[in-house]
Design a protein around this nucleic acid. Structure first.
Lengths: 220, 220
DNA sequence: CATTTGTCTGACCAGTCGGTCAGCTTCCAC
DNA sequence: GTGGAAGCTGACCGACTGGTCAGACAAATG
């Protein structure tokens, strides 16, 4: 009688799996484009090829769909950060992180925009995740980077702002895609390669140990 | 009888000026927080301290308020780019641009978020501005930077991706403020200074002519 | 075949949305 | 002060929103 109305447990039957997937995919498409309040269940239902009541048979509410999406997203999104190898060569590890993050922006722009939409509007539904899981992982990585700096294997930079800048520069190509394509009229593949080249130059120049900018450039 | 229902001409009387300003300020507050579809006229009216019909006495529709905001915003937003002096020292000019853009993010975060919201959702109302005024100015600035590179006064970088990265890194502190503050728990002033220090290091290292990365770092 | 269980839908509901309108009040030039 | 324009509002409208519900349909189970 009651459909899979809980958020946590995964669907069991074939039909449940198929329809849940269709709903989440359609919801990702619509939410990422219009934001939570801008999206409607009718839109999602139409994209998913289901009726609106049928959506609400699989998910208890609009918000439940949204939360399910966000929760499932964070792992994918943080994977590149986890993949940084503490035993690797510092500059190469960070450049690899940039490359993976940029590929994520290219291959999963909807996920990036969904997340951006949520954070832009104050992250009312995921502030817990940000101050929990996300923050912990960043703190960890920041400590790793600080260790590399202390060992003289990396130019002295603030690890947090380094991470922020990598997030910003890579996600920019997904979140502001319309702007990028409106200014830079070229194939997405070419834009991606250009971005990769530039960012590698940017970060390798700034992170190479013993580089030009050892002292803080501006006094404060 | 008819209020100032057109978009272009500025209000004349004192009351018109005062209320128009109050409406636009309230709309900026609400639109930037909830996006266009997420915001309601009732919310804007309440923030502005006016009744909803009175809002529509000054502006013909919700969309007119939004468009008015966006149009008035672009000039402010592009001012730092226009302020780049072709006769100045290249690296200093770009660092100055970064500084001004970062100050804009600190002082006008609502404007940044409004713009981000719009672009994120496909810029349905300002695609003309992006492909027109914005694109022209960027093309111009890109040519200037390319000239600096050719003269050997700047490391060889792609000017477009350089501009994109500056936009991304600076606006990140306004658009993703919730995330930044959720991770980096410190005063906004301290965060601003840290960001400025980091970004100056980042760009001065990468842009200094004759630096480490003259050849493209990755083959393609 | 009958029963049960899971899947699905048309019709509907209460609340909210952007926007209208008739008419009220306030202001100001004369 | 008075007439007319400017400024303002409560009440209202049709459209749309998220969500409900009784019951139809489908599929497994006996």
């Amino acid at each position: 009688m009651d459909g899979r109305n809980d958020i946590a447990p995964r669907p069991r039957t074939r039909i449940q799996r198929k329809n849940s997937r269709a709903i989440l995919d359609a919801a990702l498409e619509v939410f990422s484009q219009y934001g939570f309040r801008g999206a409607t269940l009718d839109q999602i239902a139409e994209v998913a090829g289901l009726s609106k009541p049928n959506l609400l048979y699989y998910f208890p509410s609009k918000e439940a769909i949204h939360v399910t999406l966000l929760a499932g997203l964070l792992d994918t999104w943080l994977a590149p950060l986890r993949a940084i190898d503490p035993a690797g060569e510092p500059v190469e590890e960070i450049l690899g992180y940039v490359r993976r993050k940029l590929e994520l922006s290219r291959d999963y722009p909807r996920e990036s925009r969904l997340f951006a939409n949520e954070v832009l509007q104050g992250a009312p539904r995921i502030s817990g995740l940000i101050q929990g899981e996300l923050r912990d992982l960043v703190t960890e990585t920041a400590a790793l980077i600080r260790g590399w700096v202390a060992a003289g294997r990396l130019a002295p930079v603030d690890p947090h702002h380094l991470i922020f800048s990598i997030w910003a520069t890579t996600q920019h190509y997904a979140d502001f895609d319309v702007q990028v394509r409106g200014i830079l009229r070229q194939s997405p593949a070419r834009t991606h390669q250009g971005a990769l080249d530039f960012l590698c130059h940017l970060y390798s120049a700034a992170l190479a140990p013993g580089g030009p900018g050892l002292a803080p450039p501006f006094d404060h």
